[in-house]
Amino acid sequence: MNETIETILSKYPNAKRDALIPILQDVQEVEGHLSVEAVAHIGKYLNLPASKIYGVATFYNQFRFETLGKYHIQICRGTACHVKGSAKLLDAFKRELKIEAGRTTRDGMFSLEVVACIGACGLAPVISVNGEVHAGVVPDKVKSILKMYREKDANNE
């Protein structure tokens, strides 16, 4: 893992604290999340305390601190989806998976992320699972969607 981060950091020679967010984005891009080790490493490189990096990273929705689930569910909370009831949809996913947004289920199967508009307002409320878009998702459909992916996984598809 250290090598991955070293490679990323080498793209930022003599970096100062203003390079923090691009570095965090790059690390998350490659590793899927920001690990404790990664943050410690970046902190040493930029001479920034880990608490400060954590503060910056938690300020933005885009950063995660747990590995992504096998199926990563992005729930759109943009305006159109909101009007069409995405808040209730998010609650349904949280209830069903027993996790908060930004977290991953214990079995590592699902992770949940809240995203702003994903540009499919005509299909609202919309979610995306590993890039697969589901349109017009009402809370009642949550169980069946999760079941579908669990079966998919069991069948090794």
Binding site: V36, P49, A50, S51, K52, I53, Y54, G55, T58, F59
Partner: peptide, 21 residues
């Protein structure tokens, strides 16, 4: 010169936290 804690999250979820809470 220690910086064990800082602000984390924002809005109504903002709180003082150590790294990774």
């Amino acid at each position: 010169g220690v910086s064990a804690i800082d602000f984390a999250k924002r809005g109504s979820k903002a709180h003082i936290a150590t790294a990774f809470d």
